[in-house]
C-alpha cells in the first residue's frame, strides 16, 4: 500500500504521463480510501488548468517599436 507522501507525486505524474501498472494500482487503491488525496486529485487537475492561464505566450505580448529602438540605442553605446 502506498502512502500519501508517495501518492501526491504520482497524482502529478499521472496528469502528464502513463504510470506503470503497479503504481497505477497502488494509486487507485490509495485513492479509494484516502479522502484527502482523492480531494487533492480533483483540485490538482483544475489547478493545472489555472496555472496555464499564466502563460504570456498565449497572448504574445510584444515590446513596442519605441522600446526596441531604445534597446538598439543602448547597444550602440
Amino acid at each position: 500500500m502506498i502512502t500519501c507522501k508517495k501518492a501526491g507525486p504520482l497524482i502529478e505524474k499521472e496528469e502528464f504521463e502513463k504510470l506503470s501498472l503497479m503504481k497505477k494500482i497502488g494509486l487507485k487503491l490509495h485513492l479509494a480510501w484516502c479522502k484527502l488525496c482523492k480531494g487533492y486529485k480533483k483540485d490538482s487537475t483544475h489547478l493545472n488548468e489555472l496555472i496555464k492561464v499564466g502563460d504570456t505566450s498565449q497572448s504574445t505580448m510584444k515590446l513596442s517599436q519605441a522600446e526596441k529602438s531604445e534597446i538598439k540605442e543602448k547597444l550602440v553605446q
Partner: peptide, 21 residues
C-alpha cells in the same frame, strides 16, 4: 480552488497566478 473559473481573458486571475508563482 475548484471554485475559480479558468478564464484566459481574466487579467486579475493571470496576475494572481503569476504572483503566486
Amino acid at each position: 480552488v475548484s471554485e475559480i473559473e479558468v478564464d484566459y481573458e481574466n487579467k486579475e486571475l493571470r496576475t494572481a497566478i503569476m504572483g503566486c508563482i
